[in-house]
């Protein structure tokens, strides 16, 4: 789709979409949203890019190798955060008392929730993108 208008608008829009996605992820523990919704929004921005330019460009932007690493490591982060609590002598995924949670009213009051939603968001975004590029580009799995 070689449409100059679309491409330009996409270029302008993408950062905004991505910032919104990150906002939703990071604010997951305070306001509606969270890793899943935010991740999808993040992924959607790349899909938009792929649609207006071409799939190859999106693949260059977000290569498969990176996707594999990101998807694996995000799950690992989740599990390791959980195991960290065990290491500190509490139950799996214990938050209170193990992770620092600053005073109420600031952004990062969730303890480990923020890193976890970040991991989820990245994982979801990556999955959405690879799903799309694999389906659209018909690459070998």
């Amino acid at each position: 789709m070689d449409d100059l208008v679309l491409q330009t608008i996409t270029r302008i829009l993408m950062p905004f979409i991505q910032v919104y996605g990150i906002f939703v992820i990071v604010n997951g523990h305070l306001s509606p949203g969270g890793g899943f919704a935010g991740g999808t929004i993040l992924g959607a921005s790349v899909i938009l890019y792929a649609l207006t330019f071409n799939v190859g460009a999106a693949e260059d932007l977000y290569p498969d190798d990176l996707a594999e690493a990101v998807e694996s490591s995000s799950v690992l982060i989740f599990v390791l955060v959980g195991l960290f609590a065990i290491l500190m002598g509490a139950n799996f995924l214990t938050n209170i008392g193990i992770f620092p949670s600053p005073e109420t009213g600031t952004l990062f009051t969730g303890g480990f929730v923020t890193p976890l939603t970040l991991a989820i968001g990245v994982k979801v975004a990556s999955t959405v993108i690879t799903l799309f590029t694999h389906l659209f580009g018909e690459k070998k799995p």
Partner: peptide, 20 residues
């Protein structure tokens, strides 16, 4: 007491370490 979780987690970690 953590063993059930650890057992699940080790398999999970292994699963996601494998592709990388």
């Amino acid at each position: 007491v953590h063993i059930p979780v650890i057992v699940i987690c080790t398999s999970l970690i292994g699963a996601f370490l494998a592709p990388v």
